[in-house]
């Protein structure tokens, strides 16, 4: 995009990413390293945006967001500045490094800041389409890149970031439940839908990849079906909470179960792999299938 003349500046917070590292060599003037200084990174990006540049702020999750929440609120959302804040890693992120590196509260934080769109790309097609959308978008974007997402789930014309909803498994009139998720958990949920179908449970799988989303569209997809939300995020404040709020606003009585990371005993003091923590917090495919069955 820079090669095509787009006025983009990469604001790097000293975090390696292959897609940007090559730019550091080929277009050094477009690569502004601010060091491990996330507050300044966001503030500098606001100044760049005020002059018409398109900044992409990126660093090691969760810090581009959590260390600069006030800058995002005051200097970015407060001035309605188009830019992208890119966090590489969602949920447990790199849990071997401990709770400091979890990015499990970001939806809750950003949903509280008006005018910032949250996007969780779920495949490579969506990531590519997001690049074009970001430059057309008049609002700041907070992007949650899940490194565990692989493969291709969408055709380009199926992606609409303003709608934010992808139905990736649709049994039509036979559906008797809906799973709503995002990020790499989609693949788990699609596999669960296959297994469930063999057991007579026909599940719609909805990818809620952009917030805010088209509420009327989602309500239409859900009908009166029971809903299971699954997310690698704090169970409080994420997409499950967004669904509760939606149902409350529209006086819908759908049964809903929310699955997410429940830090009821605080942040873990131990380290481990993502797989270890997904098991500890009961977010494995087996756990999800069990909840799905109990929901019915």
């Amino acid at each position: 995009m820079i090669e095509h003349g787009e006025d983009i500046i990469i604001v790097s917070e000293d975090y390696a990413a292959p897609m940007f590292d090559s730019l550091r060599v080929t277009h050094p003037e477009r690569f502004l390293g601010v060091g491990i200084a996330e507050q300044n990174g966001m503030a500098v990006a606001s100044g760049l945006a005020l002059t018409g540049k398109y900044p992409i702020v990126y660093g090691c999750a969760p810090f581009p967001l959590t260390r600069a929440v006030d800058q995002l609120k005051s200097a970015v959302a407060g001035m309605h500045l188009p830019m992208t804040i890119l966090n590489s890693g969602i949920g447990f992120g790199v849990p071997e490094f401990g709770a400091t590196h979890y990015n499990a509260d970001d939806i809750a934080i950003v949903r509280g800041i008006p005018g910032v769109r949250i996007i969780t790309p779920s495949d490579n097609i969506m990531a590519a389409k997001l690049a074009d959308f970001s430059l057309q978008c008049k609002e700041p974007l907070y992007v949650r890149f899940d490194k565990n997402c692989e493969g291709e789930l969408y055709a380009p014309d199926e992606i609409d970031f303003n709608c934010g909803i992808g139905v990736l498994n649709d049994p039509g009139d036979r559906a008797n439940a809906v799973i709503i998720t995002c990020g790499c958990l989609i693949n788990d949920c699609l596999n669960i839908a296959k297994v469930a179908a063999d057991g007579g449970i026909n599940v719609k799988v909805v990818d809620l990849y952009s917030l805010p989303f088209d509420e009327e569209e989602l309500l239409s997809i859900l009908g009166d079906l029971p809903v299971l939300t699954v997310e690698e995020h704090n169970v409080n404040g994420g997409i499950g909470t967004a669904l509760l709020e939606l149902f409350n606003r529209h006086k819908r009585k759908n049964a809903i179960t929310r699955m997410g990371i429940d830090f009821k005993e605080g942040y873990p003091s131990v380290s481990g792999s993502r797989e270890y923590f997904m098991k500890e917090f009961e977010l494995t495919p087996e756990d999800i299938y069990k909840e799905l069955k109990s929901l019915l």
Partner: peptide, 9 residues
């Protein structure tokens, strides 16, 4: 910080 962004631009 914003001023630095402007001056850099």
């Amino acid at each position: 910080g914003a001023a630095v962004g402007m001056a850099y631009a």
